[in-house]
Design a binder for these strands. Structure first.
Lengths: 195, 195
DNA sequence: CGTTTGAATTGACATTTATCAAGCATATTT
DNA sequence: AAATATGCTTGATAAATGTCAATTCAAACG
């Protein structure tokens, strides 16, 4: 399956509106296939996120580095998600976050100006956009709830239930950062829950 | 200014599309003015959130109660926001949260079925909906970032900067719950930062 | 094939935050 | 006005989590 076929499938899964052959041409004309190497940056803190990229293959982290040099992973993104800092992308403000590839990646990249001009008129696309905004809002709401209500151990169990594939795919120290705890604490939690 | 005028102002602030006189009639026909007394529940954990309400006056909390009886406040909602659990409202699944009035409230209430049937065709309304989903997603993203990266004290300072009016309006123990810390810890943080 | 690098684990200890209990002030109810 | 509930503060202590350092292990690399 080609990159674009993956994308068309994705969009049809999230939206009831059908994509016409013309619509597909529009996407193929403006979505630019791009490769990112492991460790390559998609976005640097302070820059405006002018591009968004549909992830066909690979994974990335959205993160900050604090004054002590510690990394905090806000988001882990995998196939069939979008690579972007929504805040910067929609508000056109400098981003607080970095985005970097964790594996070699293939994405379909487009600028927000192109989206507005060429994709906005496509009903299936706007419907998809609404769904992803909605789902992202809900996912973050759940994560806020977990953060203010759960212990570190409960948040880890939550992750096991909701994103089990993350555990197989990403090293433990990244999972710890994503959960907002130190790698040592996560290691000890795992040791305890084995029993 | 009448309840509806407040609402029309709100919608025109968030959307470029103009509301016609007919549009306004549609809203007035289906948005039902309702009063909630302080402590009254708008939504109970386990119920499906079939209604949403535009807050004309008053404030509410969205919260859970854990097995120890501790309350965790996920969200504090005030004028010109919507009263609802988005997750339950959009997915039609039982809600994990309770929503209760913190003050006597006036809201404009509507069912999601009515929204779909009568409001969805109004461009200014759908544009507004996109904006609020987007803003809610971004606000929650920021809160997740704060939760995983900041200490309790830093989260409190963050709140002072971003929602100073919350501090005047809500008691300190609710603020603490919203920040995910105990009331005693917040009291001590305030004592220390006075210096 | 050996070397190097990064991740995970473990122990000792420090720090942050929670918990429990008491006292005080203030608001609310009757 | 008295009685009651509620919120805030403070101290003593406990529990959770972080930090630092050392070690092991395995993957990655030349």
């Amino acid at each position: 399956m080609s990159n674009f076929e993956v994308f068309f499938d994705y969009i049809q899964n999230l939206s009831r509106k059908m994509l016409s052959a013309d619509d597909k041409q529009v996407f193929m004309a403006h979505l630019k296939p791009k490769k990112l190497l492991k460790r390559q940056y998609f976005l640097q803190e302070g820059d405006i996120c002018k591009y968004t990229g549909f992830i066909v293959k690979g994974a990335a982290k959205t993160f900050t580095v604090d004054e002590k040099g510690n990394e905090h992973i806000l988001k882990l993104s995998v196939e069939n998600w979008w690579l972007a800092d929504f805040e910067s992308y929609y508000h056109l403000t400098p981003s607080r976050y970095n985005i970097a590839a964790l594996e070699d990646m293939e994405i379909l990249q487009v600028t927000n100006a192109q989206v507005e001009e060429f994709f906005a008129p496509i009903p299936a696309f706007t419907a998809m956009q609404e769904v992803i905004k909605q789902n992202y809002a809900i996912a973050n709401q759940k994560r806020v709830h977990a953060a203010i209500s759960y212990t570190a151990e409960e948040r880890y169990e939550d992750l096991i239930n909701n994103y089990p594939h993350f555990l197989k795919r990403f090293p433990q120290n990244m999972i710890a950062s994503y959960l907002g705890i130190s790698p040592e604490t996560l290691s000890r939690i795992r040791k305890n829950t084995l029993k």
